[in-house]
Design a protein around this nucleic acid. Structure first.
Lengths: 338, 338
DNA sequence: GTGAAAGCGCTAACAT
DNA sequence: ATGTTAGCGCTTTCAC
């Protein structure tokens, strides 16, 4: 069943059918009704490929997810998927490893699939202007931005917390309780990811509190995986370095850390406080419940998609939204033992 | 840059370029090389829409995810996405609520997007033959099958554990330790989902052990959400019903249950054993570590996609794969107190 | 081995 | 208000 068959069925021309299908005003009510009912009867479904071929762009929004091991993304993906559906668009998702280049993947995808827009999840924050030019449809970076770059802000959008400041706030919380020996559990020291940003926040909070950073307290897991975080924490403990608190750059890693501490006979928060950033649902159900700075995931996903369609449909220019994380007080932090 | 430009660039016809691009044998090596290098130079990217228009089918595989609150799916989605990418296809993902009809969504999607295949995640297990006919491309049900139906098995594929038997095994484990007062934490009693299947397995294990099921020990959460599972467990405790163990139909719900028990002063496994089915990574990091029947998620995702492409590319007929869950012994079960 | 040409289903001028 | 028609970029007979 094509538009042609439909036209024949209704005794009108294809262009008329096309007009009805695309909600054009210049069709008589009678004809419109007739076509519409024929569509229902015949359960005609338009061919998207033909449509995008002539329009040179489709209803497809690409979602490029980089570094899939972070469970935080799962929730955001859900929200983004839902919002894209709700707007009547299609989500084409591609996952790439944390070592791959999401801008390259995005550029290829854009041209292959004739995307109308892109959402990038978990990418780098150091695009060059030249790299950026490779992608020509509107796109929004969700959960990160070009923090340390100097890009024209008008050529893309972003929705993110300020990772560095969030980390500061988390570490401030520990310092406020009197901790001075605070370890940092991170993925990689300079992976150009949120791990690095949050590590910097950790360092500046220490600095602000007059605490000299101790190399021995930098626990590098090598990835965002729980297994690696667990091992890193065990290594930290085994190293004999003294610490009364851990700031973990992610909830999942913090939960692994708590387990490692427990397995080594250290109880949280009595023997060691643990604070993190993310706000996973799971964190509310571990014991002790994790104290964490929650990223407003639903809001971030919704806002990202809203901005994207605003730009795509010409309602607004690119914009950069900073969302505020919210401290969710659990039971994983306490003042240090004397 | 279109195939036409490319042809002009190489001084050959479009059909020749097309032949090269599609790896046809009837092209002279010299011309083939010339075209290939031109493709590289110009970084030409084929237009998928045009391609699918003429082929009347695309390289897009639809993934319909029903009921998104189950974190178990997140992992499977990752694997499936990765495998589809690896095979050179595109994944188009659509999420629908647990109350929506995935076959309807799939059928619409198939025709709109000219899909070449479908993976259904978390659907019903009671399709009628007529419903099934609405979808005309190969598809595979991942993590469920037409358990209680009577469909011709040749018209679709499936990869799943036997939910009912897995539940039996889990409950057997509890019975083996001497438990007789075993509660079942489920989503819904008859929601035509794995919740119901696993509940049946629970009942048959009880039966096999000569234990009469007690209505008071059926904890219905209403959803797969942790919050609902937490409340259901608290209600169960508050009801005064006596039980020494809980079989939870999912890991996430079990973790919520453990929290609820703890918040009511009951320690796991001393005061109550908890066993579940799923095998989330998280479950290894909660305390006590959860004893659970692990679904081989990676294997299930890979197998689903492998089957799909086997059928799509005509290498094999539909098949139904039963995978075996593996008991991961944690520390959440123990014999009942005297 | 290569090219010319038809046509996939649709939209958008351009006519009427 | 409606119809006619020319492509969108590609694959695929069918000639040569």
């Amino acid at each position: 069943m094509t538009i042609k068959d439909l036209a024949k069925l209704c005794g009108v021309s294809v262009s008329t059918v096309s007009r009805v299908l695309n909600d054009r005003p210049d069709v008589s009510p009678a004809v419109r009704e007739a076509v519409l009912s024929a569509v229902r009867e015949s359960n005609y479904v338009p061919n998207n490929s033909a449509r995008s071929l002539v329009l040179t762009s489709s209803d497809a929004v690409g979602l490029v997810v980089r570094g899939v091991s972070n469970p935080f993304y799962s929730d955001i993906i859900k929200v983004i998927g839902r919002e894209i559906d709700a707007a009547g668009y299609t989500m084409v998702m591609q996952q790439i490893s944390s070592s791959a280049d999401e801008l390259e993947a995005a550029a290829l995808m854009e041209r292959e699939k004739k995307l109308c827009g892109l959402v990038l999840l978990g990418g780098r924050w150091d695009y060059s202007e030249e790299e950026l030019r490779r992608i020509t449809v509107p796109f929004v970076c969700c959960s990160y931005t070009n923090t340390f770059g100097s890009l024209p802000r008008g050529c893309y959008s972003s929705v993110t917390i300020e990772d560095s400041r969030a980390a500061e706030r988390a570490v401030d919380e520990l310092c406020g309780l009197g901790h001075t020996r605070i370890a940092c559990l991170m993925a990689e020291r300079d992976d150009r990811s949120i791990s690095e940003l949050r590590y910097h926040g950790y360092l500046s909070s220490l600095g602000a509190h007059g605490i000299a950073p101790d190399e021995a307290l930098a626990a590098v897991a090598g990835s965002f995986d729980m297994a690696d975080a667990y091992e890193a924490t065990r290594r930290l403990i085994a190293s004999g370095a003294e610490f009364t608190a851990i700031f973990s750059i992610s909830d999942a890693m913090a939960i692994a850390a708590i387990k490692a501490l427990a397995d080594c006979g250290r109880e949280v928060p009595r023997d060691c406080s643990v604070i993190a950033i993310d706000g996973l649902t799971f964190s509310e159900y571990v014991r002790p419940t994790l104290t964490t700075l929650c990223q407003p995931m639903a809001g971030m996903g919704e806002e990202s998609v809203r901005i994207l369609f605003d730009v795509i449909e010409g309602r607004s220019a690119n914009r950069h939204v900073i969302v505020e994380p919210v401290l969710r007080r659990g039971a994983s932090i306490a003042p240090p033992k004397k």
